[in-house]
Write a protein that binds this DNA or RNA. Structure first.
Lengths: 178, 178
DNA sequence: ACATGCATGTAACCAGTTACATGATTTA
DNA sequence: TAAATCATGTAACTGGTTACATGCATGT
C-alpha cells in the first residue's frame, strides 16, 4: 500500500489553528514557522489544495481562502492519534506543532511515546559505540564513522533532555489545574 | 539545472575507504553505519551501480565486486571540496563520514564552514524567539510553535558544542604533529 | 535434485523539485 | 494604462519507495 500522505494533514492542522487561510499564507507559515521540520513549495501546495477541495476535506471561498470541513477535521484527529513508530519519527515535530494547549493529554502521550522511541534508539547507538570504538586505534582507523556516531549520540542525548523538560512541564501544569 | 546526485558520490566514498565491495556490502554500510544520515534501498542501489559502471566511475569484476576508477576518484574529490551552503547542509554528515584522518585539512575546513553556517542559523532562530515569544501569553497562545522553535534552538546549540569540540581536537592534533 | 533463503534485478508509482506560464494587484 | 511585482497554476522530470521477479548459493 502507498505510504500515507502527510501534506494534507499539515494543511488541515494549519486551518484548524488559524482559521481561513490563502495558499500564500500557508506557504508563509511553512517557510517561517515550520521550515526546520517540513518544506513545501508552492508548486506542491496548490495542486494539493485542489485535490483536497475535490475530496471535500477543505472548502475554498470567493476570495481564495480555504477552510477545513468536518470531514477534514476527522481526518486530522485520526492522523494525530495514529501511533508514531521509529520509522515515522519525523512526524513528531509536525504533530506537536499543532498542539495548542500546553497541558493537553495528546501532548503528554506524544512526549511519552517519543521518549520511549528515542530512549531505546540512544541505547542502540551507545551499544554500537561500545562495540566499535572501545580503543583508540579503532577510532583512528574509522574516524569519519566515529564522528557521525558521536554526533548521533550527542543529538539523541540533547533531544531526550529537551523531551524530558517539556514532559515535566506538561505534567506539572496538568496536576496544578486538576 | 537538475540537482546534483549524491548517491554516486557516497558509493565512491565507500569504495575509496573500503576497497572492493559488493552491492550487499554497501547496503550493510548504509544500514548500519550511515543510517542516521542517509538511507538507501537495494532497488535504488543496484540500478545506480549499473549506471556508474556505464559512466566508468566504477568497475565490476567477475565476483560482482565494485571498485572505483580514477575518474570516480576525481568526481569524489571535486564533490568533497564543493562548498556546503545552508541549503546543502545535510551533506556535511556524509562528507565527514569519509574523512579517514582526524587531522586532515579537509576536516578542519568542513568543520569551520559548518560552524559558520549553523552559528548564523542559531542567531536567526534566537532572534525569532525573542520576537515571537517574549511574553507568557505569546507562548500559551502558540504553544506548538513555541515547542518546535525551542527544539530547533536546543538542537543547534548542542550541534555547535559538538562541532567546537571536534574542531578543537582536530586543530590540536595538527599542531602537535607539525 | 529440490527446497529454502539470500542477493540482485526491474517496473510501476509517488512526492517533491525545477522551470515555465498565467492571473491578479499594486505602483509609477 | 503600462510595467512591475506578487500569487497562483501547470507540466516535465527525478529521486526514492513498494512490490514483484529472477538469479544464485547452500544444505538436505
Amino acid at each position: 500500500m502507498p505510504k500515507p500522505r502527510t501534506l494534507p494533514k499539515i494543511i488541515i492542522g494549519l486551518l484548524i489553528n488559524k482559521g481561513e487561510l490563502t495558499g500564500k499564507q500557508m506557504l508563509d507559515v511553512f517557510n517561517n514557522d515550520l521550515s526546520e521540520f517540513w518544506k513545501v513549495s508552492h508548486s506542491q501546495l496548490y495542486p494539493e489544495l485542489k485535490r483536497m477541495v475535490a475530496e471535500k476535506s477543505v472548502t475554498i471561498n470567493s476570495s481564495r481562502q480555504y477552510s477545513v470541513t468536518n470531514l477534514g477535521k476527522e481526518q486530522f484527529d485520526q492522523w494525530l492519534n495514529e501511533p508514531i513508530t521509529f520509522e515515522n519519527r519525523d512526524l513528531f515535530a509536525l504533530k506537536i506543532f499543532f498542539v495548542r494547549d500546553g497541558k493537553s493529554s495528546t501532548l503528554v502521550s506524544l512526549l511519552r511515546n517519543e521518549l520511549a522511541v528515542h530512549g531505546s534508539h540512544l541505547e542502540h547507538l551507545k551499544t554500537r559505540y561500545d562495540v566499535l570504538f572501545n580503543s583508540r586505534s579503532q577510532i583512528d582507523e574509522n574516524y569519519g564513522h566515529y564522528l557521525v556516531l558521536t554526533r548521533a549520540i550527542s543529538r539523541e542525548r540533547d533531544y531526550l533532555v529537551w523531551l524530558d523538560q517539556v514532559l515535566l512541564l506538561a505534567v506539572n501544569d496538568r496536576m496544578l489545574n486538576d
